[in-house]
Amino acid sequence: MSIETATKSEKQGAKASLLSNVNFAQIYRKYGTVLIFIGICILASLLSPTFLTEANLTNVLRQVVVVSLLACGVTFIIILGHIDVSLGSVLALCGVIATSVMVMTGSVVLAVCAGTAVGVLTGLINGFVITFFRIPSFIMTLAMTTVARGAVLLYTGGSPITGLGDFKIIGQGSLGPVPISVLILVAFVILSWVLLNKTKFGRYVYAVGGNERASRASGINPDSIVVKAFILNGILCGVAGIVLMSRINSGQPAGGVGYEFDAITAVVVGGTSLMGGTGTITGTIIGAMIIGVINNILNLLNVSSYWQQIIKGLIIAIAVILDVWTKSARNKKKA
């Protein structure tokens, strides 16, 4: 499907939905995640009087920053029809290198640059190996998971890096009532949104994810798009790592384990299809907020950690079922 036909068929889809009025699948496609988010918030405020307080909402925002940053990056990857399971370990590697540079030089700027540079490098390696050797991204990033974790353990000798000084401003400071980490997130969300919606790169991401062969035929170089997306993803991993290590005020080589799970869940809950070709940044952010609110309310209600794991798993399963179901409903309509 080329870009032109993609937009045409979407327009047709929109017309069809207008004509046939209420159709659950269509509504879910468009507003589902927002409705679920509002529903969960209402439920949470009924279950706990604390939930809707200003302090708690700021708290939730601060807590979703790291996973949201990762989710923004991996949205590009998933729209391209790829996957990245190395987010958590790459985050740890970037964050620890940043803290280590901070301790060595005492400069926040150098620390941030170093952490981001490591993200760029790992993204470049992932993207290059995947496109050059035609390796499934799942396998390559799985390999990167253990390599990055091994590297960070090797670098630190397994013990945390401490004595970070001013570094903690990034994750703990605030400008007025707004945490700096939340401002960083907002900046990167806007950047990601603009890249995906307002640039040629973004349109190519959809095109390559929708149908790689067709995109190649229409003159796009899919490999270069994939590599660029992995580099962008790496940068966001780096920023997420810096924010996380700054927040906990120490470089934790064992940090970030399983964060890729939360990030990918956020993306899928946010309506991005794991098959590639469709997805939005706004959806991803709402997905991340849904996960953040659920984590928050489960803790506020003191739900046992055993149940929390089960509930999180069910949410991802339900989101994927809805994704597949609404898609098949739409396809049937087309046919």
Binding site: N56, N59, R62, Q63, V66, P160, L244, R247, I248, S250, Q252, A254, G255, G256, V257, N295, N296, N299, L300
Partner: peptide
């Protein structure tokens, strides 16, 4: 985990 300990305590 340090980050999780912080998160849970923030909620508390």
């Amino acid at each position: 985990d340090r980050a999780e300990g912080m998160k849970v305590t923030e909620d508390w």
